[in-house]
Amino acid sequence: MEKIPILRMGPFLLVTIQVDLYDRLALNLEADLIETVHKTGARGVLIDISAVSIVDSFMGRILGNIAGMSRILDAQTVVVGMQPAVAITLIELGLPLKGIHTALNVEKGIEKLRATIPPDDEETDDDYYFQ
């Protein structure tokens, strides 16, 4: 089964969506991410959608789900790299992605995530490995 890799960067998880997500892949990503947040105790999830050319209401709902579920597990979600045309389209579609943090790029997204966690809290159990 095709999978979107989830990378670990310290206390954060990084996902780069390089293909236009079809439904099955998006639902798998949602499940994998939440599972990984739970297993690793990650404090933040960064989703890079700079290569995504469209976000429809299904995809928007998935992003909202990921943010909501992560928040319940005490992790913040930041969506980064949205193309301007996608932002314009989302607003006209009626999907303002409320409750989802956004940043212009990965670097700014990481800054945003770092700001949300106290400095002495950045250590997570680093002996944990996953694919």
Binding site: S53, I54, V55, D56, Q83, A85, V86, T89
Partner: peptide
């Protein structure tokens, strides 16, 4: 922008 809107509507 028009392309993106049209593709999103089509989706």
């Amino acid at each position: 922008v028009s392309q993106t809107k049209l593709m999103t509507a089509a989706s």
